Computed example of a mutant assay.
Amino acid sequence: MAQTNRSALIFGARNLGRAIIETLVAQGWNVAGAARSDETLATVAAAGAIALRSDITDQAAVRATVEEAAQALGGMDLVVNAAAAYGGNRTGPFGGGPLAEAAPDAFDSWSVAPARSAFAFLSGTAGALATLDLHATLIQVTGGSSRRAMPGRGLWAAGAFGVRAITQAAALELREQGIHVALLIVDAGIEPYAGGGRPGVDPAALADPRQVADAVVFLAEQGPRSATHELQVTPLAETWVP
């Protein structure tokens, strides 16, 4: 059944964010998408959403974008951070590589940037909602490294652990204000929106961005007596670690 008179703002729209935007628009939500590049903003507009330029790593920019979106949409029920945040040029292999071999700037690139993004998103959005006297569901997307470290990916896990900690704190702090904060853990690589898979990876082990978008809708539609603060999705073909 299509939703009406519900508004959402999605940060990031290249892959998962694009799937979330298109899913919400198809269900009748009023949607805005925030991104930095002209190419991504064009994608947002093509999906039927309002395109807003913003920087997810900038607390003030996030707050201003939430306020702008709420004014344009006539309210705010859902805000999602689906943007990938990295500092500068990523060095070495994915995750930063073995600690003994990591470059001097690897920590800032792999660890600091994701946590800063979560901080800017949650702090900026919470501040905007307080100013506007609005209640909403806030969803921070992260990966499986927020649950455990892996060899060669310690720096990436450090940032993901930081994302999880900041999101947990926000959930605890904002509950009494009627704001539902949830961490959505996608414990797998995400299939490119256009398909085609990833080299060397079993396509069945990749998360379908459209199905992850369905998980966002599930969280957004929860009532105050059934709020989920952490939700993990793992493809059956991917390794699952309890």
Rank of each mutant, 00 (worst) to 15 (best):
N30G: 12
A60W: 04
G12L: 02
S37M: 05
W29I: 03
G28M: 10
D38A: 14
N15Y: 01
F11K: 00
N30K: 15
A64R: 12
A32W: 00
L78N: 09
A45T: 15
T57P: 00
W29H: 04
A72K: 15
S54C: 07
I10T: 01
L52D: 07
A19E: 04
V62K: 01
G87I: 04
E68Q: 15
A13S: 14
T23Q: 13
L24H: 11
A51W: 08
G17W: 00
F11N: 04
G74H: 08
R36S: 13
Q27E: 15
A60D: 14
V79G: 02
T65M: 10
R90Q: 13
M76A: 11
V62Q: 01
W29R: 04
I56P: 00
A61M: 12
G87D: 11
L78A: 06
G48Q: 05
T43R: 11
V80N: 03
L41C: 12
V44E: 04
G87S: 10
G95M: 11
G74A: 08
A32G: 11
M76C: 15
A61K: 10
D58Q: 10
Q27R: 15
G92M: 08
G48L: 03
I10Y: 04
D58V: 02
G95Q: 07
V66Q: 11
G87L: 08
A72P: 01
A13M: 08
V80L: 12
L24N: 09
G33K: 05
F94H: 14
D77T: 05
R14D: 13
D38H: 06
A83P: 09
L16C: 09
T40E: 10
V66D: 05
A13E: 02
A84C: 07
T65I: 10
E39H: 13
V25S: 05
D58W: 01
E67I: 14
T91V: 15
G88K: 09
I10P: 00
A69Y: 05
A19K: 05
T43A: 13
A47P: 12
L78F: 01
G28R: 11
A72V: 05
T91R: 13
L52E: 06
Q27L: 14
A13G: 11
R18I: 06
T40G: 02
R14W: 01
L16D: 07
S54N: 06
A70D: 01
N15P: 05
